[in-house]
Design a protein around this nucleic acid. Sequence first.
DNA 1: CGTGTGACCGGCG
DNA 2: ACGCCGGCCACAC
Length: 115
Amino acid sequence: MPIEKKEYSFFEDVFEVVMKIPKGRVTSYGAIANYLGTKMSARMVGWAMNASHSSGLNVPAQRVVNRNGMLTGKHHFATPTQMESLLKKEGVKVEKDCVVNFKNVFWDPSKELSL
DNA sequence: CGTGTGACCGGCG
DNA sequence: ACGCCGGCCACAC
């Protein structure tokens, strides 16, 4: 019995992965894109994040940064400092809009989730 | 239905 | 080392 048709959109997929990011860890758009199979289109991930605001879900977009570890999307938050604050609260060191020890806290979905 | 956009990434000059 | 440019896919108007 078809309960409800869940149209898994690109957003849903991205949101799910992002929400699976362990606390105190961060990932890059490219990593998510790679996990989704669209590694070349990391833009979609970032754009999906933008839609996360309207999604209604609590997507920890603060844990998603670019491959440089820079908080490029902080301007899209309610306040430009929210992203940094949230990351710091989670234990992620942020300095000059850049994640400290980025590679250390980096969390690759295709690697950790893998399968 | 066509065009534009988007929080990126990687390659090339 | 730096800067520019193209690409890629999904969604909104």
